[in-house]
């Protein structure tokens, strides 16, 4: 296991909802670091928590609606986002923040996590990304490299 994990999540069959999976496919070809595992997690449910264990730093790439323009990227920590602090909603294949919340609350050791959220343009049955979102993927290697090389991971935590 490598100290850094770049994890793409989402449903590959639902257009831009699967941007995290498309991102890992691109990063495997273009992002070369010996200390990074690039993981296509799909819809991992609670199994995501076990992918985080033992890491020094984790990036999670997911489709995120923050009222931006299609293809816009926001990088943020889980604790920067408003979120209902409970697991009442489905945790069976839950949305990302609930899964992370459950992990923290049941006492799992969590590494510093950056979520790379990409604003969708279209979420419907398709294995293709919309053009704006596809174009946005070109920026990912530089964004991730900058975060790692700036050493910001050492001061991040929940």
């Amino acid at each position: 296991m490598k100290p850094i994990a770049i994890i793409g999540v989402g449903n590959f069959l639902m257009g831009d909802e699967g941007v995290g999976i498309h991102a890992t496919q691109k990063l495997r070809k273009e992002f070369k670091r010996d200390d990074c595992d690039i993981i296509d997690a799909g819809v991992p449910s609670m199994a995501l928590l076990h992918m985080l264990e033992g890491r020094r730093l984790v990036f999670i790439i997911d489709c995120a609606d923050f009222d931006g323009a299609a293809g816009e990227i926001e990088v943020f920590r889980p604790d920067e986002v408003k979120h209902e602090q409970n697991a009442e909603i489905s945790i069976h294949a839950s949305e990302l923040l609930t899964t992370l919340d459950v992990g923290l609350k049941i006492g799992m050791e969590m590494p510093p996590i950056w979520i790379i959220g990409i604003q969708p343009g279209s979420i419907e049955e398709s294995m293709e990304l919309s053009e704006d979102v596809k174009d946005a993927l070109a920026d990912l290697p530089e964004i991730i490299e900058n975060f790692i090389s700036s050493g910001t991971d050492s001061v991040l935590n929940h």
Binding site: G10, E17, D62, C63, A64, E74, V81, E95, P120, I123
Partner: peptide, 16 residues
């Protein structure tokens, strides 16, 4: 029951 495993994208509202 597993009614749908289709979309679980984040709805993000920043705290500040």
């Amino acid at each position: 029951p597993c009614i749908s495993c289709s979309t679980h994208y984040l709805k993000v509202e920043f705290k500040k």
